[in-house]
Measured scan of single mutants.
Amino acid sequence: LVRYRTISKIPQITLNFVDLKGDPFLASPTSDREIIAPKIKERTHNVTEKVTQVLSLGADVLPEYKLQAPRIHRWTILHYSPFKAVWDWLILLLVIYTAVFTPYSAAFLLKETEEGPPATECGYACQPLAVVDLIVDIMFIVDILINFRTTYVNANEEVVSHPGRIAVHYFKGWFLIDMVAAIPFDLLIFGSGSEELIGLLKTARLLRLVRVARKLDRYSEYGAAVLFLLMCTFALIAHWLACIWYAIGNMEQPHMDSRIGWLHNLGDQIGKPYNSSGLGGPSIKDKYVTALYFTFSSLTSVGFGNVSPNTNSEKIFSICVMLIGSLMYASIFGNVSAIIQRLYSGTARYHTQMLRVREFIRFHQIPNPLRQRLEEYFQHAWSYTNGIDMNAVLKGFPECLQADICLHLNRSLLQHCKPFRGATKGCLRALAMKFKTTHAPPGDTLVHAGDLLTALYFISRGSIEILRGDVVVAILGKNDIFGEPLNLYARPGKSNGDVRALTYCDLHKIHR
């Protein structure tokens, strides 16, 4: 019993810090008490220290592992850092350059016999395009090294910054494609005289377009951006097909006994025919423009016929181009109408809503002055909100995010209106959640004399007048207030005048 009563005193000691020596009952000389009392004092002292730490809000209350900052290894790049964003855009520009100039170089340097010394005699450094290609190869190699040090988000939505895990993730992902696209074939085969082989191998750079397509997928929600990307894709495919079309004609031209190829026909049409040795002929500019003209006309199913396939190889390629053109029509131009419709969806919704308003007016036989006010209010409210119901949009977000959005939407009023000066951010967040926005066209009466005042109004834009009878008592403008002081009276009061809008007004109100 003594032991039980001794232990039962522990909660009292913990909360009230009572010393055991003052209790005459606990001072009985028993061996059990002498053993338990020192333990009680020690526990009391420890609990006292913990309570003191909690009340003082000291940093040592938290466990040590929670006080440590997340460790980022040296030379690790955050995937959302500004440097990584700028670097990704730079790589994107280099990939676009590669997609345009690599097929052009591979096709127009394929057994090209233009006048001038061969590239091997001039030297590697004197070729501007080769120098640019070398810079692109170096940048792609540097990009691989950067990807080995860039964080990523795993399946659990955690940012991984450990170098080993980053390397394994990159090896399992895009490393092989990036490595093949970054191989400097110019340096590996330079001086061997195989410019045709170098041009063909350099087309491996186009593998990076797969990554670019995935990154550009984030802009699919913007109709104008999608339309622009589709047109660029169409032009890029036409450019690639033009390079292939020229390569076919250029390879067949020296081996044909009869002059029936499209390059021969082009030379005869523009007065620059090929001679018996295969030299001469149109310039590279004429060849490229004509090839691009043929691919565009074939892809769009126009086909004027002034550039036509004559050999079997050219006919087979033309059939493939027609098939590609039909697929592009289905996948690209078939979506253009939907994209344009999405661009004008706001206008369509406006006309639909206006039609419903006019049908309501016609069905209920609203008189002319009231009908005009109804239409003007709808037009003004639509121009202010673009038909978007803010309350319906915010309803799907958590309250903390709703408060931040409301604070942002009402920031101008909260910053410049005098009653809100000096208020804490928590108070402003709470008030912003209570605001209701209303609009009024010129001549609209917001409050009639004798109406119950259940709200306090803040003028965000425009001006109003307060009338008693036919006498203008006051004219209020931006950041002015009218209405009933909230919670100042037990019952809502009545208006002693009319409140009429002089201009288009936007008002925020808080109800009782």
Results as ranks from 00 to 15, higher is better:
172 K>A: 04
120 T>G: 10
198 I>H: 06
132 V>G: 01
409 L>F: 04
278 G>W: 01
200 L>H: 01
97 Y>F: 03
236 L>T: 01
109 L>Q: 09
132 V>S: 03
328 M>T: 05
87 W>I: 01
396 G>Y: 05
328 M>V: 09
206 L>H: 01
188 L>I: 09
427 C>Y: 01
385 T>N: 15
208 R>Y: 04
347 T>E: 12
391 N>Y: 15
108 F>P: 01
329 Y>L: 15
104 Y>R: 01
134 L>A: 06
424 T>Y: 03
349 R>W: 09
102 T>K: 05
337 S>M: 06
340 I>C: 03
422 G>R: 07
393 V>Y: 03
388 I>V: 07
219 Y>N: 04
277 S>H: 09
76 T>F: 04
366 I>A: 02
347 T>V: 04
84 K>E: 01
133 D>T: 07
310 N>E: 03
414 L>W: 09
350 Y>A: 01
302 V>H: 08
359 E>D: 04
439 H>E: 05
409 L>R: 03
106 A>G: 01
258 S>V: 09
78 L>N: 09
89 W>Y: 03
235 A>C: 14
114 E>Q: 15
155 A>P: 13
224 A>T: 12
105 S>A: 08
100 V>W: 01
338 A>M: 05
189 I>P: 13
335 N>M: 03
375 E>P: 01
157 E>G: 11
176 L>V: 12
367 P>W: 01
105 S>M: 07
247 A>G: 01
264 H>W: 04
224 A>Y: 14
133 D>G: 07
177 I>S: 04
87 W>Y: 02
280 G>V: 01
310 N>H: 01
436 K>E: 14
109 L>I: 03
321 V>F: 03
329 Y>S: 08
116 G>R: 15
197 L>E: 01
352 T>M: 11
165 R>Q: 12
234 F>M: 13
271 G>Q: 03
240 W>Y: 01
302 V>P: 01
139 M>P: 01
240 W>S: 01
77 I>H: 01
267 G>H: 03
322 M>A: 04
370 L>Y: 01
395 K>P: 03
234 F>K: 04
214 R>I: 03
417 C>N: 07
69 A>P: 05
415 Q>H: 08
106 A>P: 01
202 K>E: 01
109 L>P: 01
